[in-house]
Amino acid sequence: MKTTLILIAASLAVLLPARNRIVAQTPTPAEVIASIDRSATALRSLQGDFVQTKELSLLQERMVSRGVIYYRQAGGALRWEYLTPYRYTFILNGERVMMRSGDRTDVIETAENRVFREIARLMMNSLTGRSLATTSDFEVHVIVEPERWVVELTPRRREMEQFFARIRLSYDPSRQLVSRVELIERSGDRTTIELKNLKTNQTIDEGVFAVD
């Protein structure tokens, strides 16, 4: 009995400081933003899988698409490729965008199209966490949980309000990478993008971002 009590007391003695350590390490919202921003700045490339779920209340449907994402910081390049339920590839490389479905390919210049560019930039920043610390476009609210950090962005500009009522980004604290993006529309419909199997800072073949 005595031995049992000693063992329990010893376990508590070990656990309590550990718990205190966890409490002490819980970052403040400002620290979370700074940490995400540092990771995003150091992010040279990102690749992985995504699952996109779009709620379409008018069509009484939930549309689930799967695909792969490639991002390269240099030159601002993004490849967003749907693999199921259909094949469709969207590549943004600098000022040019390519869309490919089946044998058909369309290339457009975004220089003349500010809205197009802004949405693409916003998506890239959401997926990578860039510019959260410096953005003036959104009100930023941070929720710190043990398993995830949630950053809620509420548009300040009317131009952005028309696209989203809110954007909710969930981060994996251990890697400081986005694991989930929720785009909530004014109508209440939402698009959820879950990112999986993410690899960072690996060399990506130039051809992945080729716009031709």
Partner: peptide, 29 residues
Amino acid sequence: GRVHLSGICVMKRIGGELVGTLMNEFGVR
């Protein structure tokens, strides 16, 4: 003209009507 938009249209027949949504590649309606 010089403005280009691209996206995905989902269409479904509901109650004899064709109902659809046009959104961009990331799901923005």
